[in-house]
Write a protein that binds this DNA or RNA. Structure first.
Lengths: 166, 166
DNA sequence: AATGAAAAAACTCCTGT
DNA sequence: ACAGGAGTTTTTTCATT
């Protein structure tokens, strides 16, 4: 992935900034914003893509607006025998949006989305099979009094049909 | 934001799925994938944008490849007098990528990125001024043995210059 | 919602600096 | 390594069915 030694200069960061806030910019418009020609900026972007710094482009979805208003963090202390990270596949828990392996007492930090409290309750119960759990329900996502950027996750938001009623 | 009652049908979810994994698809190609004509799919996408389900499009950046390999979750139990959510602005802590207000003992869940352990150490010390803290360093981000989708955050990854050495 | 055509915009190549 | 310009391809949009 990291083909180049990944040293990004000022211009690269300007490009990353613009492209993160609008991934659909044309090379021409992007070049205009950072004061470069389209061919030059195109070559930069290709380099960032080839070196693995830019991994893709995606639409940002407001999960709440899409019918998944419940957001929570779950910390799991798995039993080694059936640790979540080993025994399940992503399809088993479509509610799981991020999975992070932690150092320390709790082995896993999950970020999950649910369509309702009832749905969330069922999810917690199912996940409880893997070991002890600590749940943190998110009330709001803000910073300095303002909502932060739109909700974007490690995993695309998918349709809460079927699995949302469990 | 939510102009329409936000009931998404099967086709809308197909569009969201495709657009989340490739936000640069043309209407023509998107239409081909979900078996619709370009004008029809264009109208759908505009509806999703206008209703606030699609909030934007962005490049996905691998923070580690960009020089920010340290990922951690921090839980804060703020002193009401100088709670992080009230007294600081986003610019004060560029390392903070997500801020979530929690119910329960710890009032805030932060997701942060740092350029090095030294940098991380300094960040924790600065944040410690706001109250008690619990830190969870992420060792890896995987699910079912495979890395999950590229790292995408609530906030764009920015250049770790100046603030990364603190 | 599909089709087809016209209009607009984008990308890329090439040359020069 | 970058800027400028021309040519080519693609995309979008509109009118019609």
């Amino acid at each position: 992935m990291t083909l180049s030694p990944t040293d990004l200069d000022e211009t690269d960061w300007l490009i990353l900034s613009e492209l993160q806030s609008d991934g659909r910019l044309s090379f021409k418009e992007l070049g205009r914003r950072i004061h470069m020609s389209a061919p030059a900026v195109a070559e930069r972007v290709r380099r960032l893509e080839a070196s693995g710094v830019i991994t893709g482009y995606g639409a940002q979805v407001d999960a709440a607006a899409a019918g998944l208003p419940i957001l929570a963090f779950l910390q799991l202390r798995c039993r080694p025998s059936d640790c979540l990270l080993r025994t399940t596949s992503a399809e088993d828990y479509p509610e799981i949006i991020e999975v992070h392996k932690l150092s320390g007492e709790f082995c896993t930090m999950l970020k999950v989305r649910a369509a309702s409290l009832r749905h969330f309750e069922g999810l917690v119960e199912r996940l409880g099979q893997h070991g002890d759990m600590r749940t943190h329900i998110v009330m709001s996502t803000q910073y300095a009094g303002r909502p932060v950027a739109p909700v974007v996750e490690d995993r695309p938001v998918t349709r809460p049909e079927g699995w949302a009623s469990r």
